[in-house]
Amino acid sequence: MIIRPASAADAGIVAGFVDALLVELSGAPSRPEARLRMAAELLAGDDRVFGFLAFAGEAPVGVIMLAESVAIYAGGAFGVITELYVVPEQRSAGVAKRLVAAALDFGRSRSWGRVEVGAPHQPAWERSFRFYLREGFTEVGPRLKFLL
């Protein structure tokens, strides 16, 4: 298993994984073109968005995307896991664990004080929630959104 940073050249892989994640989580329609445009834009040099890809041999099998944010409560800069996806046939094989470890190591290298993640809806995605708890995350409460 190889974990490496995602670059703009990987936008197609990242977009495909994020599209699959959103379809799986919410039943949203697949929007590969829109996801590709956004992945290409964000990976093209935004110094606040970062990603890592997992490969089994030559085949990409997972992605984790992070955004850097800042807050007084966090003591300055911190990371937010925005997407984490592993292809179904590689789940429970340690891929997500390795991607999260890469994200945490990256956060340490940027002197982030914490990394946060929004867990998907419960109880339907309890397995995802339990994964994050096993990896050392602690529950801080639900997140809400307001679409602009």
Rank of each mutant, 00 (worst) to 15 (best):
A9L: 13
A11L: 12
A11I: 05
A11N: 12
G12I: 09
I13A: 10
I13H: 09
V14Q: 03
A15H: 04
A15P: 10
A15Q: 03
A15V: 05
G16T: 03
F17I: 03
V18Q: 02
A20L: 06
A20T: 00
L21T: 01
L21Q: 03
L22M: 06
V23D: 00
V23M: 00
V23L: 01
V23F: 00
E24K: 10
E24H: 11
L25C: 08
G27Q: 04
G27E: 04
A28N: 07
A28M: 06
P29F: 07
S30V: 01
R31L: 02
P32F: 02
E33D: 11
E33Q: 13
A34G: 11
A34L: 12
R35F: 04
A39V: 09
A39R: 04
A39T: 07
A39P: 04
A39M: 05
E41W: 13
E41T: 12
E41G: 13
L43I: 14
L43S: 08
L43F: 10
D46V: 14
D47Q: 15
V49R: 14
V49M: 15
V49D: 10
F50V: 08
G51S: 08
L53V: 06
L53D: 05
A54C: 06
A54D: 02
F55Q: 07
F55M: 07
F55N: 08
F55E: 08
G57H: 06
E58Q: 14
E58V: 14
E58K: 13
E58A: 13
A59P: 13
A59L: 15
P60W: 09
P60D: 12
P60S: 13
P60Q: 10
G62F: 03
G62T: 10
G62Q: 04
